[in-house]
Design a protein around this nucleic acid. Structure first.
Lengths: 342, 342
DNA sequence: ATGAAAGCGCTAACAG
DNA sequence: CTGTTAGCGCTTTCAT
């Protein structure tokens, strides 16, 4: 069996220092009661000598709240999420909180499961990157009274605090850029329309076209997944059209790279014969494809702001000091070193 | 202030069902005592009605052990680590454990800090990707009696269970491949020699050369960082040598891509004038650089095995069923669609 | 088969 | 300025 050895407790320290357990608490927590310098010193020495570390579990039980945040997201494997994690963990770290990571794996069943797990663990709050349009996890968490912040997703009719990037503006900037380069036929690789952040990007695409008197042709908008291969397939569809586009705006950098690959396979140079703009500014993508212009998503910032907003909810000061929910976004135009052909 | 509302407890359920709190426990935990079917049913109904969720914090305090693992690694931003996380979390999930994620940010001070945090949180065990050669975190954790497993790193004189990939074999396979392609002057971009996994790769490089009667020239081994830019710089150094290499074995895919970039900037085609082999098999890299042959690191597997090993330690069954510590590795030869020039 | 009760290690109210 | 004590919600031994 699994022997559990007793670790040093606050009572051990009290005994060693010849004071009461309460006094030890007051020293550790710097309050809420004052402690005389000599006593404090004795306690400190005892703590040092015994190597005492307060038991956070016991404290959490007593306080009826933990210093742990839950973070539910589809997949760490995607560099986009990976960078958000950093932002969250950074803020949590500064506040003495820890982050429990949960992979939903793009499944809302798992999201629901994790909602229960996190509630059972009495996390102080949850940051959630919805994997689908299913809102059950939010309803659960809310009904449990667990503070919740959604990241870069929005569903109408759902009243959950959220941190958004300005995806509309991103799409607009991307397509405006292509138009300024002289393109008139611009394809769009998108995800299913009901995903907020994606449809916002498409809305930006549409707006830029219309603003410049260009028609929005439904055939130029291809919907699909979000992986490299999906982008490749979508690009083939676009490039096989009778009047094929001369430029492509892709939902994300993966799909943009997939599209680029498709161009190479069809013997088209990028840029030159086809221009491509991606989205998210995945660092690896940008470096390996210097031709790839993209839209910078403030990923780290999103994690930070999300965590800050969550802490505001946790601490109850809802109104003030809350960061703007709509994060700015910018176009990154890469200087190509020349035309690239795979 | 932060009002903490009382949540439903086991006592509430007991009252509702008209049984003792102990009985509720026995129902929830399916033991250790039997409960009559009718009683069980009454309890289940009460649980459902009240929406009761056991408090994991209280249970942890009582059991003197948590169902939480700590995972310390340098940076989620690196896709290599990101994938390891998945493996760890997957196994933890299956066992009902949660994972607390800690970014050391390549700093051993932070590692030490997290060792303390995780001990205070009484995690059941820790998985650690050392950021440097500093072993203090391991000493701390061990002295606290916290089960610890190291991932893909090793230091001599340190007795910590570890899961390793066969980095030696990876380096060997990579360079053997280049030799078989006809290359005789092969450069090596490495990290500082005291990092175990890197020096193992160099050892493989050396072995492959020697086995084929090729001299190991110190000037062909460049040491440095681990980022794209470091690879680019290192490649410039190699390519400016009087007898410049015709092939490069890089420490990882980032540096390989950096090296490729350097080649392009010098007007050298890849492959063709220069062949490059990377390491780790970062998916994005492979896709964006179809010319890039690499060595597949079993990243997810490493996370899985690490977690499994850790659970064995936690449960005390050290000897049996422990996975082999040295994971296999394989060479991924990419078929280039042609010569690539940036 | 079930109930009562003793803690797990801590915070903070209560009592000097 | 300090000590005593009542829980936080749970598991499990000791009774019945």
């Amino acid at each position: 069996m699994n022997k559990v050895e007793r670790s040093i407790t606050r009572d051990d320290v009290a005994r060693e220092a010849g004071v009461s357990p309460a006094t030890v608490s007051y020293v550790i927590n710097n309050g809420p009661r004052p402690v005389s310098p000599e006593t404090r010193q004795r306690v400190m020495v005892a703590i040092e000598k015994l190597g005492y570390k307060p038991n956070v579990v016991a404290r959490s039980l007593r306080m009826r709240k933990t210093t742990t945040l839950g973070l539910i997201l589809p997949d760490t494997h995607n560099p986009y999420f990976a960078e958000v994690i950093r932002g969250v963990e950074k803020v949590a770290y500064e506040r003495g909180y820890s982050v429990v990571l949960c992979h939903s794996d793009y499944s809302s069943e798992r999201e629901v499961h994790y909602a229960d797990v996190l509630q059972s663990r009495r996390v102080a709050g949850v940051l959630w990157f919805p994997a689908t349009v299913e809102m059950k996890p939010a309803e659960l968490l809310t009904s449990y009274g667990v503070p919740l912040v959604m990241l870069d997703r929005m569903m109408k009719g759902v009243e959950v605090p959220v941190v958004l990037a300005n995806n509309y503006r991103g799409g607009y900037l991307a397509v405006k850029h292509l138009i300024e380069l002289g393109h008139r036929r611009i394809g769009c690789i998108a995800r299913p329309v009901d995903l907020y952040h994606s449809s916002e990007r498409v809305r930006g695409y549409t707006a830029a076209l219309q603003e410049n008197g260009l028609a929005v042709e439904e055939g130029y908008i291809i919907r699909g997944g979000f992986q490299l291969e999906d982008g490749r397939r979508a690009a083939f569809n676009l490039l096989n059209l009778e009047k094929k586009p001369t430029a492509i705006f892709a939902y994300n950098d993966f799909m943009a790279i997939g599209a680029m690959r498709a161009c190479f396979e069809m013997g088209l140079s990028v840029p030159g014969e086809i221009s491509i703009v991606g989205f998210d500014d995945i660092p690896q993508a940008a470096y390996t494809c210097p031709a790839l212009t993209t839209v910078r998503q403030p990923k780290l910032e999103m994690g930070r702001r999300g965590a800050e907003l969550l802490f505001n909810l946790i601490e109850g000061n809802m109104g003030e000091g809350v960061s703007p929910p709509l994060l700015d976004i910018e176009l990154i135009v890469r200087e190509s070193t020349g035309k690239m052909k795979g």
